[in-house]
Amino acid sequence: MLRNYKAVGRVLYGRNAFAQLDDIFEPLRVDAGSYVLFLLDEYFEGKDLVKRIPMKNGDLIRFMDVTDEPKTKVVDALVEEVMNEKGMAPVSVVGIGGGSVMDYAKATRLMFTNPGSSARYQGLDLIKNKGVHCTVVPTISGTGAEVSMTTVLTGPEKKLGIKGDFTPADQVVLDPDLISSVPDPQHFYTAMDCYIHNVEALNGNRKTVMGASLGRESLQLCQEIFLSGNSRTPENDEKLMVASYLGGLSLTYSEVGACHAISYGLATVTGIHHGIGNCIVFNQLDEFYPEEVKEFRKMMEINKVDLPKGVLKDYSSEDIEKMVDVALTLTFMWAHVAGPEWEKVITREKLRDLYMKM
């Protein structure tokens, strides 16, 4: 049976779109005590962007530590803290930042209306109640978190998304001016998440015409940006923001593949961030995506990116085995890569050898 996908509700796009945030929240502030919960990357604490947020009396702002990947325990603690302080849920949870902050916002809004720990809901269609309104504002582009139906969290046992119809944000604000100050090489690593999304979506058994059409357009934009010789222009900022949006949408109608499955294992054990982790893994995947890995290396050369080497040299064999364990749990990704009998091709030995190269 075909799935009737839920997409993002509204998209506000264009330069200086951030200035219209108040227009989004005003219709939601109907009851006495109504408030908005703003979640920001702690990078912005004390920065001018905070002064531009249209906060009203009673609104809350929390600066999120994104040193590590988003965690279920952080989501649970935040919801408990806010409910103890306010006694009621916010009218909107707003995530302003990169993929981690947007995922925190998407997960937090769900836990105001669903009981227990967010770890209970890691998986597909486990959320039963619609969350409060959610707005996401990317300040770095590439993850596709602004539009995806997944919020990726690391729990006590696994790194896995809360995925389903209740996960997509209700409102996305795409303002290309917000990503112009992203430092190198983070700008490149996060953008490559988008590039890799597209490569994986376009190469696998679950590819569809819809997903492939979105993925090809996003991939072309990535190529225009990172093969141009100057990726850091206002025009390329705008292209990257659109590429991230389209790349995130493409995954709704396809699936990620080998790189994401292996990088989930890498991140679970090491805590390495998703963007750079994907790049480290993708650089070893000539067997799966030979032409695209070659192009990726050309992009690194043009953009003067020196990818870290030997990141696993100090990890034990037990650590490597745990990475393999995590990667092998992502059966839907491997089915996309190698079909229903993927276990005959994707062996522990193959994955162990790939991790050892890192």
Rank of each mutant, 00 (worst) to 15 (best):
L312D: 02
M64P: 09
L227G: 14
Y121I: 01
T268K: 05
M55F: 08
C194F: 07
A7W: 06
Y35A: 01
G87M: 08
K309S: 11
S118G: 10
S180C: 13
V173N: 04
L40G: 11
T233E: 13
V79I: 15
T143P: 02
T252V: 13
V209L: 11
Y245M: 10
D325G: 08
A19R: 10
N236C: 08
G97F: 00
G97A: 06
Y264V: 06
V101I: 11
M1F: 14
P138L: 05
Y264Q: 01
R216Q: 14
R232H: 14
I196W: 04
S317A: 15
K304S: 14
M1Y: 14
F63N: 08
E341C: 01
G95C: 00
V172N: 09
K71V: 12
G277L: 06
R120W: 14
M88P: 01
G99P: 03
F188N: 04
L2I: 13
I53H: 11
G131T: 09
D23R: 10
L219T: 02
V66W: 07
L49T: 13
D23L: 12
A327Q: 05
E146K: 01
A32P: 12
A338L: 03
V345M: 05
D170G: 04
N84C: 14
K344I: 02
S250M: 08
F166Q: 04
I320T: 05
F188A: 03
A201H: 02
A77K: 12
P138K: 01
S228A: 08
T139Y: 07
K6M: 11
A89K: 14
G46C: 09
I272T: 12
D65C: 10
C279H: 07
D184K: 12
G33E: 11
Y195V: 11
S250Q: 08
V326I: 15
A243I: 03
Y264A: 02
K73Y: 15
E343T: 09
V75W: 08
L251F: 06
A191K: 00
S117L: 04
K159Y: 13
H273S: 15
S118F: 07
G211W: 05
V182E: 00
T331G: 01
L160S: 14
M192P: 04
T72P: 12
G87W: 04
A212Q: 04
S180T: 15
G265I: 01
Q122K: 05
I179S: 10
D41M: 02
P168N: 03
G164D: 03
D41W: 07
A243K: 00
I346N: 00
A243P: 03
K322S: 00
L202Q: 04
V173S: 08
L202E: 02
M55P: 13
A89T: 11
E255H: 14
E321S: 12
A327E: 12
P90A: 05
P156R: 03
A7D: 10
V8C: 06
R297C: 15
S316N: 07
I61E: 05
T150G: 15
Y13I: 12
H274S: 08
K357W: 01
V182W: 00
L240E: 09
E85Y: 10
L21Q: 05
N236A: 06
H274L: 08
F288Y: 15
D59A: 07
I225L: 05
V326S: 03
L330Y: 04
T190Q: 06
F25T: 07
K163E: 15
I320W: 00
I196D: 06
R352G: 14
Q284F: 10
